[in-house]
Design a protein around this nucleic acid. Structure first.
Lengths: 148, 148
DNA sequence: CAATATACTGTTATATTATAACACTTTGAA
DNA sequence: TTCAAAGTGTTATAATATAACAGTATATTG
């Protein structure tokens, strides 16, 4: 399987992450993350299920959901709530304040890596008695191509 | 049934909205919206189903989902994506750029009516070739009470 | 090295959330 | 009064997600 460098880098980073933190980089985990890294679009859990299953070896939902939960918890994938779908996180460090853009017309989804977003949200929350630990923002509209 | 004024006001506004736009203010629509207005917490579709059903008259899922879809489309309720739940929109005019805060500890949910949010998002999106028509932001953290 | 605790997987079953499809009813306008 | 459109009722089923429990792999400790 041919991979872009950045993609295999990300997989390696995930592997190192597991080693460092004494988690296991198991086959289901590897396969789920690889798949999400190789696609640049959100996949539903049952799409992943189908893509990872062969006629001989059918995977079951919990196998996929466990891997998804693991990577999600550890900042390697995002759940797109409005789509019940998952994408590989494009930059690990932005995982806490995550923003995606969904084009209403072509349905393309892109993650926006916005340094300013979490800053903005902090500014918006003037009431310092609330502490924000995580945010997910889903923007809908039309993209450059659909817009011309 | 005793209601706060603002609550019945909101129901009236919804009624007027229907009259103005030639939509019907039918019984399922009224009951679903009333219920959501009377609670200050998110309700799942099947919770609504249960609350609106009596032993004699059991409501079916499509009845609830149709009412939910109607009010959602028309800006009277929000879907909280991360919870598969629905709440009455606290201010009609903010419906396009909607932000809620969910306390991780007590699970209380509050809608934030932030004049500045949509502005901020516009500022963040420097690339003017993208047009945002709607946004939903879900913030997670700990609230004032849980924070002390 | 064996015992054992822990993390993880495999499997079956089922819960939860949402929609398709079609017959019937209400409403307003021609 | 009939016709079209909007809306509801009902049955069935799709799509998404999790509980529960037995079994396996791995690292650790005695």
């Amino acid at each position: 399987m041919i991979m872009k460098v950045s993609q295999s880098n990300k997989l390696n980073r995930a592997k190192r992450f597991c080693e460092t933190n004494k988690y296991r980089f198991t086959e289901p985990r590897e396969r789920v993350l690889s798949l999400l890294l190789s696609r640049h679009e959100p996949l539903g859990a049952y799409q992943i299920l189908k893509l990872l299953s062969s006629k001989q070896a059918k995977i079951k939902p919990p196998t996929v959901y466990r891997a998804i939960d693991f990577w999600k918890k550890n900042g390697f994938i995002h759940r797109i709530e409005s789509m019940n779908a998952y994408i590989a996180c494009c930059e690990h460090k932005h995982h806490q304040n995550f923003c995606i853009f969904i084009c209403n017309q072509c349905n393309k989804v892109s993650e926006l890596t916005l340094e300013t977003l979490s800053q903005s949200i902090t500014n918006i929350i003037k009431d310092k008695s609330i502490v924000i630990t995580r945010s997910t923002t889903e923007l809908f509209g039309s993209c450059f191509e659909c817009n011309r």
